[in-house]
Nucleic acid binder design. Structure first.
Lengths: 237, 237
DNA sequence: ATTGGCGATTGATACAGATCAAATCCGGCG
DNA sequence: CGCCGGATTTGATCTGTATCAATCGCCAAT
């Protein structure tokens, strides 16, 4: 599978050869600023299933995901879980108004992040409108995705949910690497269920149904989209 | 009911006596900036059920809600609707990355907004980091609310949904006016259903059940929270 | 090769909430 | 005052998804 999903390949230590630069917050920085900026980002690795930060914890860092996939989720007191998103390389994490994280994040597979001290980062951004503008752009984009996800959670059937998830995942991967009919799904069925507001059994049954119908083929660690057009039709976009 | 819900009272025409100033974007502006800023905001009224802007329309304005309540929603091609939020005075609307609205907004009851030309507003904000920071703060706060709402839509039962809605609504109203056990609910049952990912019948039955259980009393245009503690317990926070 | 264990799949059944249908409430208007 | 029409409530029934319970498949350790 792709290197960015498994975090196999070493990532450069300087911003200059950063693989995700043009997708990340840093895209807003010019060369001179980058010189300065490089000093407060530190690369950190996380092993599969390690928690990068937890809900309610004080936010002391921002993170830019370099390689790997993360799940972002919230828990109810009784243990019910809602995954509010999956992060891919280039995503920026840690913004909050309250000073505490409003969700938890952990690694799916191994992950590499660039970690910034929050205070230093904010001081740096303070008088750089283009950087603020970039941060805002990322926040507003996420907000738009969040609203799309609300529609999915509140108003779509199980089959529509699964089809929508597969199509969106394909589109996100296509932004990272070559578009392909073969989709790597590094997250578990339980993760998918918690993302879609379903149970693991319903997700499994729906995958099986889509396979029976010739829409997908279930393969090790992912699926193959046999009939993308039909899958898109099933999303009731 | 409260003036800000019904937009009965005339709202001042200058920023100086703006009722929502300290809650809105404008809170970030100093007196000098306000002098300049006042020139590109225009007060506009909308009657009950009028559409302020529609999804997919080009975004030409930003809006700061002055009085009244709005519903923000997305539609699926077959007419299913998901309300992604209700706006109260002080809320800022119109941010988008694509240049098009990613949801529709219409007035519930009559509404008054302060409308800004998008281009002029952006030019004004461009080199004012404190304003950009304020806009970002509002976006991040909304993002946090959006994630809370995902948990509700994906993982809560009908009763938990309704209880959560009532408690959240009470808390939002309390930020606008005196806290009170009597809640005005200007939106219809159908709106509530589309906000919670339920049907109108289920919402109605759940209200009735809460009333039978002595948690609320259903009154004209709203409810009375007879047992706030029990209601909070039902939210499964 | 054999076993243990975990994630995924499959099957049987239950139930929360949807759907279909009717009754009731209530404000506006002749 | 009485009638009309939309919103809401209530009732009866249906169904999609959850729940409960095996079973399967596959990798890793023995």
């Amino acid at each position: 599978m792709k290197a960015f999903l498994a975090a196999i390949e070493p990532t450069g230590q300087t911003c200059a050869d950063c693989a995700v630069r043009q997708f990340s917050v840093c895209a807003a920085l010019d060369t001179a600023e980058m010189q300065e900026f490089v000093h407060f980002g530190r690369h950190v690795q996380f092993a599969a299933c390690e928690t990068v930060f937890a809900e309610e914890e004080l936010t002391t860092s921002f993170y830019s995901l370099l390689a790997g996939v993360m799940r972002l989720y919230k828990l109810l007191p009784d243990g019910r879980r809602q995954i509010v998103g999956f992060s891919l390389p280039g995503d920026f994490l840690g913004m909050s108004t309250s000073g505490r994280n409003n969700f938890s994040a952990d690694a799916i597979g191994s992950v590499e992040v660039c970690r910034f001290a929050k205070a230093a980062f904010l001081r740096f951004a303070e008088d750089r409108p283009h950087l603020l503008h970039r941060i805002n752009e990322l926040a507003v984009r996420e907000l738009s995705q969040a609203r799309d996800h609300m529609v999915l959670l509140g108003r779509r059937s199980a089959e529509e949910k699964v089809a929508t998830f597969l199509i969106n995942w394909r589109d996100r991967l296509a932004r990272q690497a070559e578009p392909s009919a073969t989709l790597s799904l590094p997250m578990s069925r339980q993760d998918i269920a918690d993302y879609l507001g379903l149970t693991i059994e319903t997700v499994s049954r729906t995958f099986t149904k889509l396979e029976r119908d010739g829409v997908i083929e279930i393969i090790q660690g992912g699926i193959r989209l046999l009939d993308p057009a039909r899958a898109e039709a099933l999303t009731a976009a």
